[in-house]
Amino acid sequence: MLEGKFEESSLMKKVVDAIKDSVKLCNFNCTEHGVTVQAVDDSRVLLISLLIGEASFEEYRCDRNITLGIDLESFNKIIKNGNSSDFLTLIAEDSPDNVLIIFEDKKKDRVSEYSLKLMDLDSDFLQIDDMEFDATITMPSSEFAKITRDLKTLSESLQIIVTKENVKFSSDGDFGTGNVVLKGFVDMDKPDESIKIDMARPINLTFGAKYIADIVKGTSLSESVTIKLADKSPALFEYKLPSGFLRFYLAPKFDE
């Protein structure tokens, strides 16, 4: 049996918001260590990998591994009904047909209970071995989201160029070009505002702007985002959770 209680429903709301536009159906795999999701978008370009660790829950028990096949659009309709500050509890039997979603306000004078029908989904797992990256950038997630939104207005592609000194985000469209250059710096007072650039080898990669626009829907999950890049390889975009992570792997575009 699964019983997981969050101190606030806001975490699950943000997680669903972050992934629902990339994938529609996915299995939530529940183990004694927490909840994991791995899912690939329909075009096989973007992969999400989610870990909500046991410590993200106020109370958590999962005696046996349980798979919850969830339609995220439906789940989102229910999850939006809770207030962000409500306790959120997920309950499922060992071989469940549905999952119970319970919201309680902190005064305990209102309890809302919903049941979501589960689906039997083919799990389509990709094996991701530990990848080696040539460059790692950590920066404020809100800044990355703004850069993505701004440059997406010019072009369907977003180029990321990393040199020793800086990282350049660039777009080249029909009516003009744009770029944003960031240098590394340390903000002692607000570490999350810092920009850290680690580069072993220079990087020049191009990505579909619409996929990166989906990735930055994870912005509310974390103050900072880490971007890991390797030549001619998928990039990794990571938002850290209090215990766990939301990772996006994005395949690059290549010159023909």
């Binding site: 690939v40 075009s43 096989r44 370009v45 973007l46 992969l47 389509d124 797992f125 990709l126 094996q127 991701i128 592609s157 191009t206 579909g208 390889s233 998928p234 792997y249 395949a251 690059p252 575009k253 290549f254 010159d255 023909e256």
Partner: peptide, 14 residues
Amino acid sequence: NVSQASLIEFFLKN
């Protein structure tokens, strides 16, 4: 011109 790569090219299916 650029073409979009697929993740399948990089990650082997189990």
